[in-house]
Structures are given as C-alpha cells and as structure tokens.
C-alpha cells in the first residue's frame, strides 16, 4: 500500500519543533503525513528525536517540562499541539509508551479497566475487552496477576491491550521491539497488522530496529538528529543502499555511518528530502 497524495491525511505534522526545559531543542522542524489506515514507521538511531515526536503528538504533562515551540500537529484537520494527553486520548490518539507502559501495582484486569474514555459506549467497551483477549490470548489466564510481575513480552501485550480499550483511531507505538526476543517481536508485529485490520485504525510506529519497522509498515520516515532525512514507501526504503548500509547492517567497509554525511552526494530517490 502506498500513500495516495490526494487523500486527506489523518495526521499532518508540519515543521514541528519541540524544546525541553525551554532551551534544549529536541526536534528541528519535522514534517510528516500519516494517511488513514496505514502503518507508518518513524525510524532512526537512539536520540534522533523519534520518541519526542511521538510524545509531542500524544501530549506533554507538566513534569515533562517540554513544549511544542513551533510548527503544527493536525489530527483529522484539527490542531492539537500542546493539548494534554487525556484530551488527545479522548480524540482517539492513544500511545503505547516505550517505558513504564503498564501500572505495575495494578492487576492485568485493572490495567484494562483503568482506561477512561468517553469515546466507547459500554457495549463497545465490552467488545474491545473481548478483542484484547482474542488478540492476546496469553493475557487471559493472567487477569488477576499484578502487571509488575509480567514478562517483557506480556507487558507489551498488556500495554497494547490497555491502549486498544481506549478505542484508538491513531495508535502510536514507541519501540515495539525494544528488549524483546525476536520470536516475540515477530509475533507482536503480526498482531499490529491484525489490530489495524480488526479496528480499521492507523498506526504510527517508532522503532530503532529498522528491519522490523520496515517489515510492518507501509510507509517510512528516517529521522536523524531531529530532522527527517529520508522518506518513502517501506518496500522502497528497504531496497535503498543507504538504509541497508546504516540501519540493516547489510554492507560493510564503508566509513560513512550516518545519512547526513552523505548529503552532499546527489540524492535521486523519489522521497529524498534535503534541508
């Protein structure tokens, strides 16, 4: 599946700039589009600004001391930058965070009941609850267990579950694969596609593991040091030599390790961006 240019994007981010503690700028003008019912991957190295971008969409709270200082985030046409997370969740933008993704002192069942959303009627809510256990049958026997006692994979499943009961329209996933065994990652990747199919939702995925991300996604953005440096349909990105070399580790012997170092070379891909 590819982006259809004439359709309206569900999420449109233009020239987004985010600062922490009023001075440290973590994003320098990121622009991206997420089309309805696609899976879009935002890939890049550690510290590239991927998580910041996702957190800016989901919303910051006071203790983050972070703010969108420029640009815009439009969700279904409405501007949502600097809205609190609960308001965005109520709009249907739901995040599966990278760390602290479940409430450790609540049981698995309580981690699902905790979600407060007025978007779903109580009948819908019951249906979503059932869907969670249908998608992740491994969680069913663990209902009464404290989430703090779950394995990493089970935690990730529960985090997806508690996001699903919020009735998302846009699911934001921060690091699907981090700290998980490859078998678990493959399994989760299949479930993400199943979630998209079952709920007809849109997914924006942030990943360090570029191979995993481009395998799941329809479209990809590569972000480096707070800038988008490359974008394109996932299949096309997978085939690009720079991606294979820097992120997939398929080529060796070249001294250049970052995409930006290649900028001066003529860029000719359809989705190339230069600043």
């Amino acid at each position: 599946m590819t982006n259809v240019p004439q359709a309206a994007p569900l999420l449109a981010i233009d020239d987004l700039r985010v600062a922490y503690h009023r001075v440290a700028v973590a994003l320098h003008g990121v622009t991206l589009r997420v089309m309805p019912q696609t899976i879009v991957a935002l890939v890049g190295n550690n510290g590239a600004g991927k998580t910041t971008a996702l957190r800016a969409i989901s919303g910051f709270i006071g203790v983050d001391d972070a703010r969108v200082i420029g640009g815009s985030i439009r969700f279904a046409g409405r501007r949502i930058e600097n809205e609190p997370p609960h308001a965005n969740t109520a709009r249907g933008i739901v995040l599966v965070p990278e760390r602290d993704k479940v409430f450790p002192n609540l049981t698995v069942a309580e981690n699902l009941t905790v979600a407060a959303t007025r978007r779903a009627s109580s009948a819908e809510r019951r249906r979503l609850d059932e869907l969670v256990f249908a998608l992740f049958p491994a969680l069913a026997p663990l209902r009464a267990r404290l989430a703090g006692l779950l394995s990493g994979g089970e935690r990730q499943m529960l985090a997806f579950g508690s996001a699903i009961v919020c009735k998302p329209e846009l699911l934001l996933v921060d690091e699907l694969s981090l700290g998980l065994a490859p078998v678990v990652v493959d399994d989760l990747a299949r479930r993400v596609r199943a979630i998209r199919r079952e709920l007809g939702i849109t997914v924006l995925l942030v990943e360090q593991n570029v191979g995993v991300a481009l395998a799941i996604a329809d479209y990809g953005y590569v972000i480096e040091s707070g800038h988008v440096v490359l974008e394109g349909p996932a299949g096309e990105l997978r085939g690009r030599p720079e991606i294979q070399q820097f992120y997939l580790g398929l080529a060796t012997g070249n001294q250049v390790r970052r995409y930006r170092a290649l900028r001066e070379r003529p860029a000719n891909g359809p989705g190339d961006r230069r600043q």
């Binding site: 993704k101 409430f103 002192n105 905790v114 979600a115 407060a116």
Partner: peptide, 19 residues
C-alpha cells in the same frame, strides 16, 4: 482504580484518558 493508577504513574494515567 484510576486514583491508584494516577498515584503510580501520572503520565501513563493521562495517556489512558484519565484527567
């Protein structure tokens, strides 16, 4: 349950729609 959750992790509580 939401009160207990907010005490444990305010950010995640907000992200789960809790004001």
């Amino acid at each position: 349950v939401r009160m207990r959750a907010a005490g444990q992790n305010p950010l995640l509580a907000e992200q789960r729609g809790i004001r």
